[in-house]
Design a protein around this nucleic acid. Structure first.
Length: 1135
RNA sequence: UGAGAUAUAGCUCAAUGGUAAGAGCAGCUGCCUUAUACGCAGAAGGCUACAGGUUCAAUCCCUGUUAUCUCAACCA
């Protein structure tokens, strides 16, 4: 039986299947955990995907990254537990259910009960789990899918509730009234996810106005009426104006001018930087006295300037006094968001209809006016009978065509009757009529149409309003400092995402709005009395059970839905006796101080679900308390997801960790880029350019797919996914490695050799070439380990590729071949086998994180079936085996060989044609010594007989002077260029002097500069009369004269080649001996006779006969030995 | 609109404050040398996006511009 399995061809897909079957039957994954029991754990958290969507190729990318580091750390001896998880709540699931049921949000509770709806959601969300499990399996992602955490699970929810109550008890959870996107047409608030559905932001044209807010502040004198100018794109919010905001450091000017519509003399205040937008410089020449109302050029004059902070506190008159606000209003305040890029540098503040407005008003004690109701209509009070009529939609888009027609007729009648407009032809929006009214009342400074992007409701297509709504919030803003500080402990890959995208986000973090008015999600565990004076936040099932008992005893509830729950029993059965979702949670009424408490009807943001995962996956603190409290399984050593999670999962993990546990939730995080199609476009099902992961893996195997994705770009760069790239990896890396293994197994089996690890030839006793590749292997181990440890898998992959292709296959094996196939087993042959074995088995280990299947296949081929590479411990780099000088020498050998081949190429001399000698000019001894040691390798590689080292005493060598800019730059400073020019002109002198005395001094502009040995490099570049090549500091020359014996030898080699080809064609084993008959040929006979033993030993020819003629038989073929020489040959196998 | 990333050979990617910026693929040329034609060798291919600045010296550091991508979005 053959010790090392041999294969006909490389079939990566088949290897994947075989190894997968082995893992399953061997329980290798489980063993990789159990064999590390008691070792330092390396903590990994799996971000939960939503099983509601299908897995795409980008998931393969993200999961490869996760898998690589988990496997690598296992290889290093850590125990790496990986619990799978499913994200099961949230809008996408609800939408998908609504779609499949053919209903909308409004139908829930009407056409379908909430109970039934949630049953549908629960069913729907897990519909693709088998697809996910399949991809996970075939891509080789090791994660425990037997016992995943599921966010709709009662245990999970209990932990989430505990976290929420923890926040509540720390006073970090509050109910607030804030400005949120709201769709009047749909009657619901919108989450930012909803707002970011494609196509939601659309360019719209709005009527904008610069309104004039009258002030009587003494700051501006009393000569003329004075107005603040403020621009708005939403004139319908002007009746709700209660403040104006300025920038503290912005410079404002008081300008004397005229009302451009009425021509009345006025003073206006605006930012100095924006004067150009409103005043034409040409008007400077117009005298104030010459101005008449209606003139195009309006004179203006700067009267005074102020800083924004000086204006703060100024009072002004209400612009449109429909309703008088209670409390303080109509004051200038300072806002940090005010800029001078648009408008007037003074911002109109309607606290109810803008988030900034709300915030600045709150900070300054300004009250608000909410003159629009939830339908998107003005309150009845917003009515003057001429321009505004009360209870009308503030946005034209909310009206149906019929409503619009009716409204148009009404306005036409009124406006024409009151003489405001001669003949009204189209419907005028609220905005337009407000602008008209301002103009009429001399409160308008400018009006224009302005195009900008504005959010629309994805469901109704109507514009969104920003509207004050009640919500529950996590106090994040007050804890920014803590978040930022903790973030500094996190190692981000790439760093910029942590400091930039994430860091900036934290520094400006706003409170986290937890409320969602949906149905399928974790209910907010807060019960409140109707008067809001009493509330309870539930932190456990047991607590809820007790509270319900209390409620029943007080008579506010009848039955306890948690009756069957046994506190302390952590079994699944016990936790399946109830459901915490809607509507059950809503049916629970609690009691406190004699008041019934009702549940706050909102659900929580699903991002809280996933951010709670470190604790909830363990059912903390009800189980596994010590794992978190004693930091045994917390925080994570490593997490990885796409960059899109920066403000998603990465953020929520961080916030919950920081606020509940005063800790980071993860220490290292890799945020990977997107997977684009090969042209750099986003993949989408709609465009049909999405890559199917299953298909790809089945075609190329998981290893090539994973390797390609990892090696081609850094994880955080976007990947342009191109199938070509996978096949390139397939043949370049895996093909080469497969061939190298085939070579090893073929000869090892022939020699009946097997590696005995306890009885290997010491590395120090092996030949130069062996020690070289072993040294290179140490370097590879060192580098790849460092790259894995710094979360740079692409660099590890590239280092491995380079080793396999450049060094192992195309240098080590190529130059060692003869050692394997000549003669009996010898110590040198054993060393060669052992060296190659060590390289291959170490490669299997170091590449196993990225290519888990192939690596295991290789490992088992080398070490016998049954043991997995993933259970081994990574060999450590052995510095004693590293020989940098040797690596350098070999590098020279490779370069010199390449140069000789290049000369051969230009001279059209085949490598098979032997040549007599190479000349290498040498200027110092050590250089020569280095080359001497690798001389034989070079000679055999380039098929030349000898190397001759020549120096100046023997021949003329042309030398070149190279300056060392690093040392010289410091020395010469600004003279550098002059020195360079000087050296160019006097190189011969300098070389001569430096070689003699080690010094050369020159004077430039009075400064003396001394060139020393370290400042220059003297390189031989040419030997006149020879064929020369040079690269860097190396120069070689080739003697291309062909003597008769050389020519004959060349022919002999050609002949050997032809015989070998025929051997292969007729299917001989590499060990078969043959009888060769060759028809005599005058140009060939001498060559054969003079190289007979060479030919015979190369081709295992026992008997070579030169015959006068060969009959035309099946085993006789015509061969062309070179262009001019051809003959007949027959080969017979001898027994 | 803001934040972040990217820009190097036809393509995918490296590298470096210092003389001639490297690989692979594709294309070109030549080769089937007992592991490999899914291979090997060779040649060619670049004002390192654009414009400034710092420096003796910039592809690299800084500023700005442009393009592409991502994320965020009430910026009047």
């Amino acid at each position: 039986m053959k010790k090392y399995p041999e294969y006909k061809k490389l079939d990566l897909a088949q290897i994947s299947k075989d190894v997968l079957a082995f893992w399953e039957q061997d329980h290798t994954f489980e063993k990789s955990l159990s064999s590390r029991e008691g070792q330092t754990p390396w903590v990994f958290y799996e971000g939960p995907p939503s099983a509601n969507g299908l897995p795409g190729i980008h998931h393969v990318m993200a999961r490869s990254i996760k898998d690589i580091f988990c496997r690598f750390k296992t290889l290093q001896g850590h125990q790496v537990k990986r619990k799978a998880g499913w994200d099961t709540h949230g809008l996408p699931i609800e939408l998908s259910v609504e779609k499949s049921l053919g209903i909308t949000k409004e139908d829930i509770g009407k056409k379908i009960s909430v109970e039934q709806y949630n049953i549908e959601c629960r069913k729907d969300v897990m519909k693709y789990t088998d697809k996910w499990e399949n991809v996970t399996k075939i891509m080789g992602y090791w994660v425990d899918m037997q016992d995943p955490y599921i966010t709709y699970d009662n245990k999970y929810i209990e932990s989430v509730w505990w976290l929420l109550s923890n926040l509540y008890n720390k006073n970090l959870l509050y109910k607030g009234y804030t400005i949120q996107p709201y769709s009047p047409a749909a009657g619901t608030g919108l989450s930012s996810a909803e707002l970011n559905q494609p196509g939601c932001y659309r360019n719209v044209k709005d009527r904008t106005a610069v309104a004039m807010f009258k002030t009587s502040d003494t700051l501006f004198g009393t000569d003329l009426p004075t107005y603040f100018l403020a621009w708005t794109t939403t004139p319908w919010t002007l009746p709700s104006n209660t403040a104006l905001a300025v920038g503290a450091d912005i410079e404002y000017v008081l300008v004397k001018t005229f009302n451009p519509y009425s021509g009345i003399p006025v003073q206006v205040v605006l930012a100095k930087d924006l004067m150009g937008k409103y005043f034409n410089p040409k008007a400077n020449e117009v005298a104030f006295n010459d101005y008449k109302a209606g003139d195009k050029l309006i004179p203006f004059e700067e009267i005074n300037t102020f800083k924004g902070r000086d204006l703060a506190g100024c009072r002004y008159e209400q612009l449109l006094p429909y309703v008088t606000p209670e409390g303080d209003a109509f004051k200038v305040v300072v806002g940090d968001f005010v800029t001078t890029t648009d408008g007037t540098g003074i911002v109109h503040i309607a606290p109810s209809f803008g988030a900034d407005d709300f915030r600045v008003a709150k900070q300054n004690g300004i009250s608000s006016l909410t003159l629009v109701d939830k339908r998107g209509k003005f309150l009845p009070e917003v009515k003057d009978g001429i321009f505004l009529y009360g209870e009308e939609y503030v946005k034209e888009a909310y009206l149906t065509d019929a409503e619009k027609q009716q409204a148009f007729e009404q306005q036409k009648h009124i406006l024409e009757a009151n003489g405001k407009i001669k003949e009204l032809k189209v419907y005028l929006s609220v905005d337009e009529r407000i602008v008209l009214k301002l103009q009429e009342e001399n409160k308008l400074f400018k009006k224009e149409t302005y195009e900008h992007s504005y959010p629309h409701c994805w469901r109704t297509d109507k514009p969104v309003l920003y509207y004050p709504l009640d919500s529950w919030f996590v106090k994040v803003a007050d804890n920014r400092e803590k978040l930022v500080k903790l973030n500094q402990q996190i190692n981000w890959k790439p760093e910029a995402t942590g400091t930039g995208r994430f860091g900036n986000w934290l520094e400006n973090a706003l409170d986290w709005n937890l409320s969602r008015s949906r149905f399928w999600g974790i209910p907010l565990p807060i019960w409140q009395s109707e008067d809001k004076t009493e509330s309870i936040c539930i932190g456990s099932i047991e607590q809820l059970q007790n509270e319900i008992r209390n409620a029943i005893s007080k008579g506010v509830m009848n039955a306890n839905p948690l009756n069957d729950f046994k506190p302390g029993d952590m079994s699944a059965e016990n936790y399946n006796t109830f459901d915490l979702h809607k509507p059950y949670a809503d049916n629970i009424v609690l009691e406190k101080n004699g008041k019934p408490l009702y549940r706050e009807s909102d659900l929580i943001d699903v991002w809280f679900d996933s951010g709670a995962m470190p604790y909830a996956q363990l059912h903390y603190p009800f189980e596994n308390k010590a794992l978190i409290d004693e930091k045994k399984f917390y925080p994570a050593d490593f997490i990885a997801e796409g960059v899109d999670q920066t403000r998603g999962w990465f953020y929520t993990l961080h916030v919950i960790g920081a606020l509940c546990f005063d800790s980071v939730a993860y220490k290292n995080v890799v945020s990977n880029g997107l997977v684009l199609d090969k042209n750099g476009n986003k993949m989408s099902k709609r465009l049909g350019n999405a890559v199917d992961p299953v298909e790809t893996i089945e075609k190329f195997g998981a290893d090539a797919t994973r390797w390609y994705m990892i090696a081609n770009a850094a994880p955080w760069d976007n990947l342009k996914f191109d199938m070509e790239g996978i096949s390139e990896v397939q043949r370049k890396l895996f093909g080469t490695l497969y061939n190298t293994y085939s070579f090893f197994s073929l000869y090892a089996n022939v020699d009946n050799f097997s590696v005995d690890k306890n009885n290997m030839v010491p590395v120090s006793e092996r030949v130069e070439l062996d020690r070289w590749i072993i040294s290179k292997l140490q370097t590879l181990l060192e580098e790849a380990t460092a790259f894995y440890e710094s979360f740079e898998p692409h660099r590890a992959a590239r280092a491995i590729e380079d080793f396999v292709d450049e060094h192992l296959s195309n240098w080590y094996v190529r130059l060692s071949r003869r050692r394997f196939w000549k003669g009996e087993m010898s110590r040198d042959k054993q060393a060669a086998y052992e060296t190659l074995y060590t390289c291959l088995s170490t490669l299997a280990q170091i590449m196993s994180p990225i290519a888990p299947f192939f690596a295991d296949w290789l490992h088992q081929n080398l070490n016998g079936q049954g043991g997995s590479v993933h259970l081994t411990y990574l060999v450590k780099m052995d510095a004693a085996l590293q020989d940098k000088a040797l690596e350098e020498r070999m590098d020279m050998a490779q370069k010199i060989s390449s140069m000789i081949l290049s000369i051969r190429k230009t001279e059209k001399l085949k490598v098979r044609q032997p040549l007599q000698r190479i000349q290498i000019p040498v200027l110092d001894k050590t250089y020569q010594e280095k080359i001497e040691q690798v001389k034989d390798l070079i000679l055999s590689e380039v098929n030349v007989k000898e190397i001759e080292f020549v120096n100046e005493s023997q021949t003329q060598i042309v030398k070149q002077l190279k300056l060392n800019f690093k040392t010289l730059g410091k020395k010469c400073g600004k003279h550098m260029k002059a020195v360079q020019a000087y050296a160019g002109n006097h190189s011969a002198d300098i070389i001569q002097q430096i070689e003699k005395t080690g010094k050369y001094s020159l004077t430039l502009e009075g400064d003396e500069i001394v060139l020393e040995t370290e400042d220059v490099e003297i390189i031989p570049v040419d030997i006149p009369g020879w064929k020369v090549a040079n690269s860097g500091a190396l120069t070689v020359a080739l003697d291309i004269t062909l003597s008769e014996p050389l020519k004959q030898e060349g022919l002999a080699r050609e002949l050997v080649n032809r015989i070998q080809t025929i051997r292969k064609e007729i299917g001989l084993e590499v060990t078969d001996k043959i009888l060769v008959k060759i028809q005599q040929n005058s140009s060939l006979d001498a060559a054969i006779k003079n190289n007979l033993s060479y030919i015979c030993s190369e081709t295992l020819t026992s008997d070579l006969q030169l015959v006068a003629s060969l009959p035309q038989q099946a085993n006789v073929s015509n061969i062309e030995v070179d262009e001019l020489v051809s003959t007949l040959i027959s080969i017979e196998k001898l027994n």
